[in-house]
Design a protein around this nucleic acid. Structure first.
Lengths: 255, 255
DNA sequence: CGGCAAGTTGAGCCAGGTCAACTCCGGTGG
DNA sequence: CCACCGGAGTTGACCTGGCTCAACTTGCCG
């Protein structure tokens, strides 16, 4: 049975991650899906063009990070959603509505699936259907969560939420207290609806309060999970940006 | 054939609206779904309890408006999503993740569907599956759109976007320029991540600029669609809240 | 090593949050 | 039928979180 599994699939995100969508498939299904699929890579900043999406509306993120961006008329940019390893992106209605541009935020590898084969597998295999349905529903609720973060949370609270979101989204890699942030400060700001300067200041506050430690621009250690959770859930920090930085700055300039 | 259609179904939102999900069903399918479904009504402000959702995780909005609310620890409330007539709500993963509370925003009638029958229809009927899948994907993209509205738009821009969102969501009722707003000011504020006072001020600006006319708290007329569209798409209004109201207020107090 | 892009720090300002007073309206009871 | 009440909405005045702009530092790539 395993000897029938195509080689490529053994390392594929859809096979290993993504709640094992491909692992629910029978070998013949897997072979036929694999035969009609293609991987493509993108460099950071590259946009996935509309005509490519029209031809291959369904794909899986193999590695790297992809963003769905919206642009306002005057140039303000928003990252409306992130997709990471194992996420299944289904753009089959992108022609009906203006969903935005897909842009690679890092070196990105995607596996484009044949819509026809995908559909026929979803039809015939109830377990596969259930997995893919759950994943789609999960994306929907993730977007809803993100909306509510943006709606009422303050900058510090949004950042704290985001750290937990990252930690939940790659449970393998992060050993609970180590969280990988898959984006640059600028991207992060665009996702959280704030300015890069503000992101930077918020990180500083969390570091000063010994709640996190920023080892690298893309890797942080959570030192005090309950405190971070408190902030993320909106137990309104008495230390806001103003209260947090300005006294510190004064102290620093005084010392 | 039509004599086999259960009476209840003829007026059901899932049958008439919702891209005609039920209309794709064969009479026997419809009969079996109908037999195992139940309608329930809620009053404004009522929460749909978790145990009800656990037993009936899939339902359709027949009439009225339902909201998905998130609550922060210090009491700040957000309406993360609206559901209106024809929307299919699938909460089958609500146990895995904290999705929030479902609260009726008006007199609400929902039709609870048997998950088992629903699943079997989705399995056997490709057209029904495609319709329901599209609808779920649409909900997802709607949430993503909403995120990007909240992330970078100013208050006035968010309100303008919201008016278009309402107009698109019940294309039947609104005769292009008449838009029904299905929520109170307070709910609207919670959905758009702003204060009721600010919502009120923004309406006033749009009225003063002769872009809309508010006939009733829940019904507005769009007088200048291009201008409203401009604002919604972020062609940064030179008239912000401050610039809009304060001069007016001065004029008023001077006159 | 030089040049550019990303990130950080600082200072000032403004959009919108906050609080308080007032109006409007639907329901209730006398 | 009107007096009263309470909750929703509106208006005004003030205040602040975070945006803006500018200067600086850091890190990456050739």
């Amino acid at each position: 049975m395993s000897d029938q599994t195509p080689e490529d699939c053994k390392i594929c995100a859809l096979f290993c991650d993504s709640s094992n969508f491909c692992a629910t498939l029978s070998p013949p299904e897997l072979v036929s899906l694999s035969a009609k699929s293609q991987t493509t890579t993108f460099k950071r900043g590259q946009t996935i063009h509309d005509d490519l999406i029209a031809r291959w509306p369904i794909f899986v993120i193999e590695s790297g990070v992809m963003s769905l961006q919206h642009l306002l008329n005057d140039g303000r940019k928003t990252i409306a959603a992130f997709y990471t390893r194992g996420d299944v992106v289904d753009m089959r209605n992108s022609s009906n509505r203006k969903v935005g541009h897909l842009v690679a935020l890092s070196k990105l590898k995607v596996c484009k699936l044949s819509p026809r084969i995908f559909e026929s597998i979803v039809h015939s295999n109830p377990r596969a259907r259930s997995v893919i349905w759950d994943s789609l529903r999960d994306q929907s609720f993730r977007a809803i969560d993100h909306s509510s973060d943006l709606a009422k949370k303050q900058a510090l609270e949004k950042l704290a939420s985001f750290i937990f979101e990252c930690s939940h989204r790659n449970p393998g890699k992060s050993k609970k207290d180590r969280v990988e942030i898959p984006a640059r400060r600028l991207d992060l700001a665009e996702y959280l609806g704030m300015q890069p300067e503000t992101v930077s200041r918020c990180y500083k506050i969390l570091e000063d309060q010994k709640i996190i430690k920023v080892s690298d621009l893309s890797l942080i250690h959570i030192l005090d999970t309950p405190a971070l959770r408190q902030i993320a859930n909106g137990a309104r920090a008495e230390q806001t940006i103003t209260a947090g930085t300005r006294p510190n700055l004064k102290m620093r300039s005084a010392g």
